[in-house]
Design a protein around this nucleic acid. Structure first.
Lengths: 215, 215
DNA sequence: TTTTTAAAAGCTAACCGTTAGTGCTACGGT
DNA sequence: ACCGTAGCACTAACGGTTAGCTTTTAAAAA
């Protein structure tokens, strides 16, 4: 986020960028499975171990640019306008994310992801992480324990929307359709959720599942 | 399903069972990551290639017994009582499945799964497959195209329930809670779904997403 | 400046899951 | 009894990933 200051950090960032760019280029040129880690390392002119000191796995190379997806959803909750309900805020963000995947620059990458089982699996496991952090953000906003089943469920539904909408014929319409369902799911579990500033303790915490609310 | 008839098939089934049993025993004894494929093969007294001719991956060894989970959800839809709505039928089945994971015999295995990232990922990708086959079953029942976003969404929510409920403090209550949400999500997209025998074409197919209904 | 320290990058060699290639053996259909 | 083939074994390798250790180089201490 903050620009690297010393020459050392600048070089490190440059190496990382170089590796990611080279990898993505090779993957798109020759196909993900047809390019080995050793190929990427050679083309980027770094050692294999250096590559793995920057990226945890071959798949991670592909998602380098979208790594902050994790925070965007949580931020959509924490940084939203004070009077905006949670679900519409999430819908806005989700629409932007889905649009981005279909955008000029990102589309070829996502086409490759969709065509590569290993990458689909990786994305799926990423989505689980994202759902957890989103669940924490929602729970914090509602003053519920982070492990609350209701919050984790809503978060899971929201991240499902990402993969479902991306695969739909009309992603925008799909986001709307799925979020109508999410809105309904939200409404039965957190009825009459007040706008925001503070304590909509009217939320029922489920049938004792998940955890005890504040009082 | 049908008992193997010839000596050949019996031997093959025995080999497979032997491998699966040995693997699960070693995994539970020493830990999944501490046991290599070559260890399993040696202990089961088969060649590594034989092992992989029966199981597609190391992870698959763990889920051998629960492989038919895939069909159970779809069957819960197709084989339900003619006057039972879809969602309650799915809830019943889900409750049974979650219960089974916590049962005497299966609990240690699932504890190991929860503790092993590789197995969690594998389970996750299995759940995606299950969701797709469930989506097809639902779509068929409603006379909608299999790619219908609404059906895929409901199916995804249902399979989410499995992992969310398993991890909850009170799995039974969690299933109920999550299915209240699913019921609500269903209701907004398939309003006033008649009981069953035939054509509840009142279902809206979303905003043109997914596909065209029968007429 | 010089010295010191430690992060970053490199090299080698291996581990582990998985697969290809090949051949042998024994079951099952004729 | 015979042949076709399914099942299994063996070796060897491939590709992602990691451990161990050395070399470079930026940054901080002297």
């Amino acid at each position: 986020m903050t620009e690297p200051v010393g020459r050392r950090e600048r070089k490190k960032a440059a190496t990382r960028q170089n590796i990611a760019d080279t990898a993505l280029r090779l993957f798109l040129e020759r196909g993900y499975d047809a390019v080995g880690i050793r190929d990427v390392a050679a083309e980027a002119d770094v050692a294999v171990t250096t590559l793995f000191s920057h990226f945890a796995s071959k798949e991670a190379l592909v998602f380098e640019r979208d790594e902050d997806f994790e925070k965007r959803l949580a931020r959509a909750v924490t940084d939203r306008e004070p009077d905006e309900p949670i679900v519409p805020a999430l819908r806005r963000e989700m629409r932007a994310m889905v649009r981005h995947c279909a955008s000029e620059g990102a589309a070829p990458t996502w086409r490759m992801i969709d065509a590569t089982p290993a990458l689909r699996e990786y994305e799926e496991s990423m989505r689980l992480r994202h759902a957890e952090s989103l669940a924490s953000a929602i729970a914090a906003d509602l003053d519920l324990p982070p492990s609350s089943t209701a919050c984790r469920t809503i978060a899971r539904f929201v991240t499902d929307a990402h993969s479902l909408a991306r695969e739909a014929a009309d992603p925008d319409a799909a986001v709307d359709e799925i979020f109508r369902m999410i809105e309904a799911a939200w409404a039965v579990t957190f009825p009459t959720t007040a706008s925001r500033p503070g304590y909509n303790r009217s939320a029922i915490a489920g049938s004792g599942t998940g955890g005890t609310p504040g009082a």
